[in-house]
Design a protein around this nucleic acid. Sequence first.
DNA 1: TCTGGGGTCCTAGGACCC
DNA 2: TCTGGGGTCCTAGGACCC
Length: 426
Amino acid sequence: MYEGALKIKLTNTNKSFIIILVKFMERQILHVDVNNAFLSWLAVNMLEKGSNIDIRTIPSIIGGDEEARKGIVLAKSMKAKECGIVTGEPIYQAKRKCPGLQIYRSDFKVFKKYSDELYNMLLEYTDKIERFSIDECFMDMTEYLIKDTLLNKAKEINKRVKSELGFTVNIGVAHNKLLAKMASDFTKPDRIHTLYNEEIPTKMWTLPISELFMIGRKTVPKLHNMGIKTIGDLAHTDRNLLIKKFGKQGNTMWEYSNGIDNSEVNYQYERPKCIGNEITLPEDICNISKLEEILLALAEQVSYRLRKSNLLANSVSVHLKTKEFINTSHQGKLELTTSNTKTIYKKAKQLLNEMYKAGTFIRLIGLRVDNLVETDEVQLSLFDNENKAKNEKLNSVIDELKDKYGYNSVTLAGKMNVGDYIKFKE
DNA sequence: TCTGGGGTCCTAGGACCC
DNA sequence: TCTGGGGTCCTAGGACCC
């Protein structure tokens, strides 16, 4: 409807009416962003369990397992931030910056719980909600056409989340997703910001380009070399020059810097495009049979997730990262779509053997399946044989045991001594 | 700086076909 | 055949996000 209104042919007689109409019909988008999600959620969970310290008020971080070479900072409290600790840095470094730093492990189940609580509360305002990540939602609030009404709704949401759920959110208010997202990122925590078109020059163009969504660490120096430092500089750069230099991405960055984004709030379920798992090994490995064992464990994990989602995969890819941080990957099509552990493993093993150069030390290995389709979309092959039926039976028995007694309760034989390497998340 | 894991999308180049 | 051009599909790699 919004698009349609824009496409109406403008004549002199109806022009001003149409302009008013389009303005009236501008979409109203909210972007709700949980402040410091992982740390806040863990804090709330600890308090609910009776803890008498709020880890948000002390120097604390959420970090990975140092011994398993996953020791990086995933989230930090304000006090930790004041010590100069940044997300992504090694934990040992963070400890040096801040003696007495409290370190907590991340717990995905806890995060999911609070993410769902937030989502369910937001559903009371509109069902047009896109869960952009575990801690971010876009809401299409176009039904609240009056600016004041919308702002009041934003204030109400902000207040209710704090009092009923125990953590805080930032809310961005704008006419499209990009601007709402940029707005929610302004000053934190517990704030509501608007970013309407007329506010773009003062609120957005003054920011450095690194703040613009989709401008990452590789693009920043390239833009700097062109003399582009702020989002405003980018907005005033010739669009065709950017396209010539960056292709499609150049066009997107020009549009974003000018506040243009026509994408919809995708509130309907979309099936994933791929499912993958990867693991940084506790130590570098140059033994292919060890790698194969780990690959089997990964195949088991990936195909279990496929079956849980009622999906079948069409292709498999294997990723390796060497000791020197060089990435390589190999992919291949499957003869038939499948969610069978053995079939996926067989293909993955073949790919690994094609790409692995003997003697190379491997730091990370990953397995991913692509080109997914719903199980009931696929017609069963005429060559469906007894063997396949047997495998499916085996898979479903294993899945049931996993569901009942936990993921690690039962595995295929090959994985038995891989447990030393991989501790799978439940 | 001794650097996780799960995703999405894009691009360049090669194979293959007409 | 010493050799064009367009289209499609596939693969490897990389950039970005949270």
